[in-house]
C-alpha cells in the first residue's frame, strides 16, 4: 500500500538512528509518568475496594444535628412524658421543633417560633393525595364551623401539640372526634402492651360527650343494651370526613327483627314484613312506612340539636 508516486522498494535502506533518541525520550516520559502516577495514588486507596479507604472515616466524623427524643427528654422530661402518651407519640420532637443541636447551642433557637398555625397545617392541612385516614382540615371551613373569626388564630389556642387528643388539656375532658384510625397511627414504634390487648384500650371517645340527651334517653329505652354504633354506622363520607348514618329503612331493623327459619325465638322479638303492618293496623299496608314511625320511643327520643360529625 505504498503511495503510487513512489516505485516500490526503490529507496535506500532506511537509517533509523536519528529516531532512537525520540523513542527514548518518549519511553522515558512514559516511565516517569507511570512512576509519578504510582507515587500519587492515595495511601489508603484500595483498602476496601476501588476507592480511598480513609474516605469512610472522613464520612463518619460529622456531628449529628438531629439528636432524638431521648436527648430532648433529658431537660424536658415532663413534656416528653405527656407527649409519649398521646396521638403525636410517634412524632419526634425535632420534626416540629427543628434540629436539637441548634437548640443546644442557642436556647432560643427552637421551632416553631412565630406562625404556629402554619406549622400545624404542614401536616394537617387538607391536601390532595394525603391519605383519608389522616386527620386534616380546611382551615377556613374549620374556623367557620367552630366560630373562629380571626383567621390568624393559632391552632395551639385550642389544641395542644403535645396532647392533640385533648381539646382542653387542663381538664383532660373534651377530646377530638376520632375518625377511623389505625392502631399504628398513635402507637407506632411504641412498645406498648395495650397494642396487643385492644379490649383494654381506654375509650378515647364516647357518644355521650356530645349527645348527652340522646344517650340519656337511650339508656332508659328498651334498646339500652345496644351500643350506639350497632345501628349508627360510622361511614367515611369522603377522604377527609365521616358521618354517623341513621338508617330508617325497615329492612335495617329486620336484620335483627325479621322472622327467619334460621333465627332463634329467644332473641329480639321477631316479625314478618310487611305482614306486620296488616297485623297492627286495619288500613291497607303502606310499604313506605318506617319502623321508627311507631317505635321511636323504644330506641331513643329525638332532639332538635344537631351535631356535625365532620370536623
Amino acid at each position: 500500500m505504498r503511495s503510487p508516486s513512489e516505485p516500490p522498494e526503490s529507496g535506500p535502506p532506511p537509517d533509523y538512528r536519528h529516531a532512537y533518541p525520540v523513542f527514548l525520550i518518549m519511553g522515558g516520559l512514559l516511565v516517569v509518568a507511570l512512576a509519578v502516577r504510582a507515587w500519587l495514588v492515595p495511601e489508603t486507596f484500595g483498602e476496601f475496594g476501588y476507592y480511598r479507604g480513609a474516605a469512610l472515616d472522613e464520612a463518619k466524623v460529622r456531628t449529628s444535628r438531629y439528636l432524638g427524643r431521648q436527648a430532648c427528654a433529658e431537660c424536658h422530661d415532663d413534656v416528653a412524658a405527656l407527649h409519649a402518651k398521646d396521638a403525636h407519640g410517634s412524632v419526634e420532637c425535632e420534626t416540629c421543633h427543628g434540629p436539637g443541636s441548634a437548640h443546644v447551642e442557642d436556647a432560643e433557637n427552637v421551632l416553631p417560633r412565630a406562625d404556629r398555625q402554619q406549622d400545624c397545617l404542614v401536616c394537617h392541612r387538607r391536601l390532595d393525595a394525603r391519605p383519608g385516614s389522616f386527620p386534616q382540615i380546611d382551615r377556613d371551613e374549620h374556623f367557620r364551623l367552630v366560630g373562629v373569626t380571626n383567621a390568624a388564630t393559632a391552632c395551639v389556642r385550642c389544641h395542644s401539640g403535645h396532647e392533640p387528643l385533648f381539646m382542653n388539656k387542663d381538664l383532660r375532658t373534651a377530646r377530638l372526634h376520632p375518625l377511623i384510625h389505625a392502631c399504628g397511627d398513635c402507637h407506632l414504634g411504641r412498645q406498648d402492651q395495650t397494642l396487643k390487648q385492644p379490649a383494654g384500650h381506654p375509650q378515647i371517645f364516647q357518644c355521650s360527650y356530645c349527645h348527652a340527651d340522646v344517650s340519656a334517653s337511650a339508656a332508659k329505652a328498651e334498646h339500652h343494651a345496644i351500643a350506639c354504633t350497632t345501628c349508627h354506622l360510622f361511614i367515611k363520607e369522603n377522604a377527609f370526613s365521616g358521618r354517623i348514618v341513621r338508617d330508617t329503612d325497615p329492612r335495617f331493623c329486620l336484620l335483627c327483627h325479621g322472622q327467619a327459619d334460621f333465627r332463634s325465638q329467644d332473641g329480639p322479638p321477631l316479625i314478618t314484613w310487611p305482614g306486620h303492618l296488616a297485623d297492627v293496623s286495619e288500613e291497607t299496608p303502606d310499604p313506605t312506612r318506617a319502623c321508627v314511625d311507631c317505635h321511636q320511643d323504644q330506641i331513643h327520643d329525638l332532639f332538635e340539636k344537631e351535631v356535625s360529625h365532620g370536623l
Binding site: G11, P12, P13, P14, D15, Y16, R17, H18, A19
Partner: peptide
C-alpha cells in the same frame, strides 16, 4: 539527513 533517514522517516 540523508535519503536513508528520509526513507526511515517515511516508513515510521
Amino acid at each position: 539527513e540523508s535519503p536513508a533517514t528520509r526513507e526511515a522517516d517515511h516508513r515510521i
